[in-house]
Computed example of a mutant assay.
Amino acid sequence: MTSKLRAIEESYSRIAQSYADHFFDELRHKPLDRALLDVFADQVRGRGPVLDVGCGPGQTSRALVERGLPVTGLDLAPEMIAEAARRSPDIAFRTGSMLALEDADATYAGLTAFYAIVHFDREELAQACREFHRVLQPQGLALASFHLGGDIVHRDELFGQRVSLDFVFFERGIVEEAFLAAGFRIEAFLERAPYPEVEHPTQRGYVLARKPA
């Protein structure tokens, strides 16, 4: 594991409980996110398992299970996985890096990455997209969300705990390029304004991409 990934792992392990308390119910306040998960689930249901990368405390994993999908949640931080397992003991969770997934080729019918790429530079984003493509079945579907823009915001503290995290905002074209270069076909790209009362005030981007047959 690189020093950067180690810092991400350690940071999220320190704040796992507070982060989970704050974000586990966030989808209740985000109607577009729920609608996109509905669209994703309708196209993946019955075709095989789904991987939720960067799952955190498992809020997206839970939403996918509620939509009838067999889901595994993956996160870098062991303490975050422990929080996810405590809150959703019926879902399979495991630690791991989306930059080097342990799964065999063509394992999953679908993959979600909700704000999972927000700490990556462009090279890491490209590697993640290649791994997403590798583990998806032909016609498999990926749904990713991220912060739109060109900023990098560093945080030394979150929820009263010491962390070392860079939050990277991506322009639309950079994300599209990474998915296309990995071999995906982009089916939709959406942007929305923030829900100011429940999340950080940034523009949000969503990409829905399919692995060709």
Rank of each mutant, 00 (worst) to 15 (best):
Ala92Glu: 13
Thr112Trp: 05
Ala41Arg: 14
Leu76Pro: 06
Met80Ser: 13
Leu27His: 02
Gln127Ile: 00
Met80Trp: 07
Glu66Ala: 15
Ala128Cys: 05
Arg122Ile: 06
Ala113Arg: 10
Gly150Ala: 06
His29Asp: 14
Pro70Glu: 15
Arg86Leu: 15
Asp52Arg: 13
Ser88Arg: 11
Asp105Lys: 14
Asp33Asn: 03
Glu102Val: 15
Arg62Gly: 04
Leu36Lys: 04
Glu66Val: 02
Ala100Gly: 13
Leu27Lys: 06
Arg28Trp: 08
Pro70Met: 14
Phe40Trp: 01
Ala116Asn: 02
Val118Phe: 07
Glu66Gly: 14
Tyr19Met: 03
Leu148Thr: 14
Asp25Pro: 09
Gly73His: 02
Glu102Thr: 10
Gly140Trp: 05
Ala109Cys: 06
Ala106Thr: 12
Asp52Glu: 11
Leu27Arg: 07
Ala142Trp: 04
Glu124Pro: 03
Arg87Met: 09
Arg67Glu: 06
Ser88Leu: 08
Arg34Ala: 12
Ala144Phe: 05
Asp90Ala: 15
His119Thr: 09
Pro49Met: 03
His119Asn: 14
Gly68Asn: 11
Ala126Pro: 01
Gly150Ile: 05
Asp38Gln: 05
Arg134Ser: 13
Gly54Cys: 00
Leu158Gly: 03
Glu157Ile: 00
Leu37Val: 01
Glu26Tyr: 07
Pro138Lys: 07
Ser61Pro: 15
Lys30Thr: 02
Glu131Met: 09
Thr95Gln: 15
Leu101Ala: 04
Phe120His: 01
Tyr108Trp: 01
Arg155Met: 14
Leu36Met: 11
His22Met: 08
Ala63Trp: 14
Leu64Glu: 07
Ala20Asn: 01
Val153Tyr: 06
Phe132Leu: 12
Thr72Phe: 02
Ala142Val: 08
Phe132Tyr: 10
Thr72Gly: 09
Pro89Glu: 07
Glu123Val: 06
Ala82Phe: 07
Glu124Val: 10
Phe24Arg: 08
Leu125Ser: 07
Ala128Met: 10
Asp33Tyr: 01
Leu32Cys: 00
Tyr115Thr: 11
Phe114His: 09
Pro70Ile: 08
Val44Cys: 02
Leu51Gly: 03
Val135Met: 03
Glu102Ser: 15
Lys30Tyr: 07
Arg130Tyr: 01
Met98Arg: 09
Phe159Cys: 04
Glu66Tyr: 00
Asp75Ile: 05
Gly149Cys: 09
Ala126Asn: 00
Gly140Val: 04
Arg67Asn: 14
Ala77Asn: 11
Ala144Val: 04
Gly68Asp: 00
Ser88Lys: 05
Gly140Asp: 02
